[in-house]
């Protein structure tokens, strides 16, 4: 009880500190272009460790409603686009699927593209993947992935290179969690998937998507078949106004284009 009390007190103090920082527009570090910017300190100072999502087995550093940045506008946040600080619905359902169907990744080499907080990659490592590479072009996301991997006691390789478009042969499984968020990018990704599948036909490509318009209307949709569907939980719905369902899709170009 004493321990719980101490923890609670510490926690409150930490949140209060965050709020004060926001008030004075001072996060733990200054802007990202500042050479002294420390992504680890920023993540520690502006997120909390959360299991309040669709994969409670995995602990993640996320910006939650209890963090000061939650209610701030995008301009108040000192790193641009902290996409890694939120657990995207497509990523959540894909991660849920991997945890529920561990055989998909067991003893396989796995690439997680646009990994963000790294949840899907962590799930693959937890379910016995031989090798896992978490890839995100945002260096702060790379720091977050490493911190999240440590929280869950798994090992990940990370990369901040843009791997989309690269002819890669060595992957058994490729994850794309919520990557079809705009039409142009959806086209870039779908072209890459085509060449990826051509160079390695045994490569399995899994996509998590909450019914985004840019995927629904895209021709690549006809090459996907749904392997699972999940209702988004309340927290996820609140973070994604209007979305209610998330699907996991497998890419299969042998299906005819409609």
């Amino acid at each position: 009880m004493n321990y719980a009390f101490t923890y609670k007190m510490y926690f409150k103090a930490n949140l209060l500190y965050q709020r004060l920082n926001l008030l004075f527009r001072r996060c733990h570090s200054e802007r990202r272009d500042n050479p002294s910017f420390d992504p680890i300190k920023f993540i520690q100072g502006n997120t909390e460790i959360s299991t309040n999502h669709m994969t409670p087995e995995i602990k993640l550093h996320l910006i939650t409603p209890r963090c000061a940045l939650w209610d701030s506008g995008a301009d108040q946040c000192l790193v641009s686009d902290p996409f890694w600080a939120f657990y995207w619905p497509g990523g959540q359902v894909l991660t849920r699927y991997i945890l529920d169907h561990g055989s998909v990744v067991k003893d396989k080499s796995v690439l997680d593209v646009g990994s963000g907080c790294g949840a899907s990659a962590i799930a693959a490592a937890m379910r016995g993947a031989r090798r896992v590479l978490a890839n995100d072009i945002d260096p702060v996301a790379a720091a977050a992935m490493k911190m999240n991997a440590k929280l869950n006691s798994v090992n990940l390789e990370t990369s901040t290179d843009n791997l989309i478009g690269e002819g890669l042969h060595q992957w058994d499984v490729v994850f794309l969690g919520d990557m079809f968020y705009d039409e142009e990018f959806a086209s870039t990704v779908s072209d890459w998937l085509k060449t990826l599948k051509q160079s390695n036909s045994s490569c399995q490509i899994l996509i998590g998507d909450p019914g985004r318009f840019s995927l629904e209307e895209h021709p690549v949709k006809s090459l996907l078949f749904r392997v699972a569907e999940y209702e988004l939980d309340e927290v996820c719905r609140r973070e994604n106004n209007g979305l209610t369902l998330g699907g996991v899709w497998a890419y299969d170009p042998t299906r005819t284009m409609k």
Partner: peptide
Amino acid sequence: PRYATLPNIMKAKKKK
């Protein structure tokens, strides 16, 4: 009407 929170504002940037 709801207020737009940071996760929603950020994701809105990606919409067309």
